[in-house]
């Protein structure tokens, strides 16, 4: 496993896609702070419920503010990073050395998870710094212990993102092709992003709404105490998603033929 991760590290640091992904995630908060500054200069007022991030303290909510973008960017990265191994045939170089397919799967998941972590950490740090510089650090309404809140919020948002990363990795291993993985990943993101909203409107499927991690990410406000109270439920749904998608992905990948 460590050997596989060492190989992944070499590939990752020399991959343009890795640097492009990180750049997008890190540039996004800078663009948003500039955008917010212009809005304020034009007489608009930043409102936390609408704008999500309004000062340095709410900068911890950058993942909530950019949820869809993060998912699409990391989804695209995972699709290429894994799909190209199949398309270039390089996966054969590893597996024919007798490496365990389960280890190979996990090495890809670990890399995707680490990239997501570094990306969202960078995004949050830059977001908090730049919004502090522009609007001051301020605070989050009804939050007394900010440090504890920030840690819990960042952790919960990351786990929600990670659950989706796990699904993207599964999709990439099942489709074995970066283009198909990209399309299915996109459809999954859009589908699970909007279907729960529809479920919410129906009597029969209402309870299904929060079976999807994106429902939390897209429809809840992480600065609202009532929603903050759902953190444990969010983590549970995320962990179940990670376990299920990894189990399905590994089960099918270990039984599939590599062309």
């Amino acid at each position: 496993m460590l050997n596989l991760l060492a190989a992944e590290k070499i590939k990752l640091f020399r991959s343009k896609k890795f640097w492009i992904t990180l750049s997008i995630l890190c540039l996004l908060p800078i663009m948003q702070v500039v955008n917010s500054l212009f809005a304020v200069r034009n007489g608009e007022e930043l409102v936390q419920v609408i704008d999500t991030v309004v000062n340095g303290a709410t900068g911890v909510l950058m993942m909530e503010k950019n949820g869809l973008t993060i998912l699409l960017v990391i989804g695209a990265f995972s699709s290429f990073f894994i799909g190209e191994e199949f398309q270039n045939g390089t996966i054969r170089n590893t597996l024919s050395l007798g490496r365990s397919r389960t280890h190979y799967y996990f090495s890809k998941f670990v890399i995707a998870a680490l990239l997501s972590f570094v990306g969202v950490l960078g995004m949050t740090a830059i977001g908090m710094t730049s919004f502090t510089a522009a609007f001051g650090f301020g605070g989050v309404a009804e939050i007394n212990n900010y440090f504890s809140y920030a840690l819990k919020t960042f952790g919960t948002l990351y786990v929600l993102i990670l659950a989706n990363v796990s699904v993207y990795v599964m999709i990439s291993f099942l489709t074995k092709n970066s283009s198909f993985a990209l399309i299915w990943g996109f459809l999954y993101t859009i589908g699970t992003g909007f279907l729960p909203g529809i479920f919410q409107q129906t009597a029969h499927f209402k309870q299904v709404t929060y079976w999807f991690t994106e429902s939390f990410l897209f429809y809840l406000d992480f600065a609202k105490p009532a929603d903050i109270a759902l953190y444990s439920e969010m983590v549970l749904v995320s962990l179940v998603t990670i376990v299920l998608s990894s189990a399905v992905g590994i089960f099918l990948f270990t039984r599939s033929d590599i062309k």
Partner: peptide, 18 residues
């Protein structure tokens, strides 16, 4: 089966790690 974006040396480094 090679990594097209890597040099010959880097391709061999990947396989050595694998």
């Amino acid at each position: 089966a090679l990594y097209p974006e890597l040099t010959a040396r880097q391709n061999l480094q990947v396989q050595a790690a694998n």
